[in-house]
Amino acid sequence: MTTVDATALASLLVLADGRFPAGGHAHSGGAEAAVAAGRIRDAADLEEFCRGRLHTAGLTAAALAAAAAAGADPLLLDEAADARTPSPALRATARRLGRQLMRAARAAWPSPALDALAAARPRGAHQPVVLGVTARAAGLGAGAAAYAAGYEAIGGPATAVVRLLGLDPFEATGVLARLAPELDAVASRAAVAGERVVEEGADVLPAASAPLLDVMAEVHGGWAVRLFAS
């Protein structure tokens, strides 16, 4: 299992806290479109949705974050994130979230690396890349960054479905608890891949795909009325 340096654990808690003002509360991670399509109707459906998201988009995001935290070139990682995000709607969302996270990160952990990335990507870099650079600025390593990105991949939809369906918050939390062992496995795999990027280049990053998430994101982006931005 991937380990997290106990001396930096408090920073990880701050970074992964849902109250950290990174803009994630405005996004459902595809859950709103899935609810509207009847694919999420209860806690069991939510669990399957989050499991699928964790092992696809979540794995890719976690590896990107891990690579950035390990010191890989964030601009190259941003290009790799573009290549792994076929949906224009999801690319726009990732950059919007990256821009918001950057604002919060620079206030919390001022860093020349964050300043340089903000200057190079004024419209926002992909959120997992910003997350990884933020983790590095906070003294966290690849494993911690992978955990933060992986947890976000499932925590966002779980929180959103509580609002979308009126799902019992205790049931949503139970879903996250049951997925914890799988999050461990995904974070470990992502951390190893992220650390390899430093020596071997971005081609070793996973490119796990979830075509239905891409399709639903494009449909959701065209809605005139929606509760979440994505």
Rank of each mutant, 00 (worst) to 15 (best):
residue 132 G to V: 04
residue 145 A to P: 09
residue 133 V to M: 09
residue 76 L to Y: 00
residue 154 I to H: 07
residue 72 A to K: 00
residue 145 A to D: 10
residue 139 G to L: 05
residue 162 V to T: 14
residue 141 G to H: 01
residue 122 P to I: 06
residue 161 V to S: 08
residue 66 A to T: 11
residue 95 R to P: 05
residue 152 E to S: 14
residue 63 A to W: 02
residue 166 G to L: 04
residue 100 Q to D: 14
residue 129 V to D: 13
residue 68 A to E: 10
residue 69 A to V: 01
residue 130 V to T: 09
residue 165 L to V: 10
residue 157 P to S: 11
residue 126 H to N: 13
residue 95 R to S: 11
residue 95 R to V: 08
residue 171 E to K: 06
residue 95 R to C: 08
residue 132 G to F: 01
residue 124 G to C: 08
residue 92 A to C: 06
residue 152 E to Q: 12
residue 107 A to F: 03
residue 116 A to Q: 05
residue 149 A to W: 02
residue 99 R to E: 15
residue 96 R to Y: 07
residue 76 L to P: 02
residue 85 T to S: 12
residue 169 P to V: 04
residue 62 A to Q: 04
residue 70 A to Y: 00
residue 158 A to T: 11
residue 164 L to A: 08
residue 92 A to I: 07
residue 136 R to D: 15
residue 97 L to R: 05
residue 90 L to Q: 13
residue 62 A to T: 07
residue 148 A to W: 05
residue 125 A to W: 03
residue 144 A to V: 06
residue 122 P to T: 09
residue 116 A to I: 06
residue 105 A to G: 08
residue 156 G to E: 15
residue 173 T to M: 13
residue 60 T to W: 01
residue 126 H to K: 05
residue 121 R to V: 07
residue 61 A to K: 03
residue 147 Y to F: 14
residue 65 A to D: 11
residue 145 A to K: 02
residue 86 P to D: 05
residue 171 E to D: 15
residue 99 R to Q: 14
residue 148 A to C: 13
residue 132 G to D: 10
residue 88 P to R: 01
residue 61 A to G: 15
residue 111 S to E: 11
residue 65 A to C: 09
residue 146 A to C: 07
residue 159 T to H: 12
residue 104 A to M: 04
residue 104 A to P: 02
residue 101 L to G: 13
residue 172 A to V: 10
residue 174 G to C: 08
residue 72 A to F: 03
residue 76 L to E: 15
residue 116 A to C: 09
residue 102 M to R: 00
residue 163 R to I: 05
residue 172 A to G: 12
residue 68 A to F: 05
residue 114 L to R: 00
residue 105 A to Y: 00
residue 120 A to L: 08
residue 126 H to P: 11
residue 64 L to E: 14
residue 79 E to K: 04
residue 112 P to I: 06
residue 72 A to R: 01
residue 138 A to H: 03
residue 140 L to Q: 07
residue 146 A to W: 04
residue 115 D to L: 00
residue 90 L to I: 10
residue 82 D to N: 10
residue 123 R to F: 08
residue 168 D to L: 09
residue 143 G to A: 08
residue 87 S to E: 12
residue 80 A to S: 13
residue 116 A to P: 09
residue 173 T to D: 15
residue 110 P to H: 01
residue 125 A to D: 12
residue 117 L to E: 10
residue 169 P to W: 03
residue 107 A to N: 05
residue 122 P to R: 01
residue 93 T to N: 10
